[in-house]
């Protein structure tokens, strides 16, 4: 497992902001408004393996990568619109974690066909996307976003916990990093489910509505697919995650006194390119600039 250090972006560079003009181990700032930046050791931006993905592994990486990408894209729209500034920052952190997972997964998927993460994100059309319908559901009000986060984060936690043992070293490494981050997403959404459910009458009403609006898309998450049969030992069989998922959310729902609405079950189809009506709009917005400039780099 080799990790490339990609130091040109998302610099963790640190500077010492004090204009007395003295230098210390953080570098220094002079009195002319120049902020000196020193070199900090940067972690790898993408998790990369030495291997090239097979067509099947690439397809699987695409599944997981698209889920994270679409969800990150949605959460990114919250920044500057959250209920409180602290929550702008919190949702931003969740979105940034997910975009990190998406980039590693899409990068790996691309190794099978010599495409970059951006080729995959910006130059595929809707039928070539593999995202689940639940991540395509719109942000709605804060309760809808929290309900979607609650479901997806709990699923992703169970998934990545198991994927750490994948026979594919790259997938295992991506899962090992991602699992810690989605663990926090799980906690964040749980805290808010409890607060909205037991807050005011209005928040309780909204939380109930949101959960019942999102629940029809849960079954698709745990549905198996022929690809999974071919990736025994590499992929995690979605159906085997269901009981752990149910067990993890049950105590939260009990404490929140929320019941799962048994009603519609959406037929899904995201893994084979049949998407919700929301995805096309989302992609149009996400891809508009890139597609206006074929071959350009940014």
């Amino acid at each position: 497992m080799s990790e490339r250090i990609n130091s040109d972006a998302d610099s963790h560079a640190d500077s010492h902001a004090d204009d007395h003009g003295h230098a210390d181990d953080h570098g220094h700032v002079d009195d002319h408004g120049h902020v000196a930046v020193d070199v900090t050791t940067l972690d790898a931006e993408l998790i990369e393996g030495p291997s090239v993905a097979t067509a099947d592994v690439a397809e699987y990486a695409l599944w997981l990568g698209d889920d994270s990408l679409i969800l990150a894209q949605q959460l990114g729209a919250w920044i500057s619109r959250a209920p409180e500034l602290e929550e702008d920052v919190a949702l931003g952190n969740v979105a940034l974690d997910l975009i990190g997972h998406a980039r590693s997964l899409l990068h790996y998927a691309g190794t099978a066909s010599n495409r970059t993460e951006d080729d995959l994100a910006y130059w595929r059309t809707e039928p070539d996307f593999r995202s689940l319908h639940i991540v395509e559901q719109p942000n709605g009000d804060f309760a809808h976003t929290i309900a979607r986060q609650f479901i997806v984060a709990h699923y992703l936690f169970e998934l990545y916990s198991r994927l750490r043992a994948s026979a594919d070293a790259t997938l295992a490494a991506i899962a090992a990093k991602a699992v810690k981050e989605v663990d926090y997403h799980r906690d964040h959404s749980t805290q808010w489910v409890l607060r909205l459910a037991h807050g005011t009458d209005e928040s309780r009403r909204r939380m109930i509505t949101a959960l019942s609006d999102l629940w029809p898309y849960v079954d698709e998450v745990f549905r198996d697919n022929p690809l999974i049969d071919r990736l025994e030992g590499i992929a995690v069989r979605p159906s085997t995650l269901r009981s752990a998922f149910d067990a993890a959310i049950a105590p939260v729902l009990a404490e929140a006194e929320l019941e799962i609405a048994r009603g519609f079950v959406a037929s899904g189809g995201g893994r084979t390119g049949t998407h919700s009506e929301h995805l096309a709009f989302l992609l149009a917005e996400m891809q508009v600039l890139t597609r206006a400039h074929p071959g350009a780099s940014w």
Binding site: E86, A90, N93, D187, Q191
Partner: peptide
Amino acid sequence: RNARDLYTRRS
């Protein structure tokens, strides 16, 4: 949690 999100974003 807010403190973690706000004051430890850069380790």
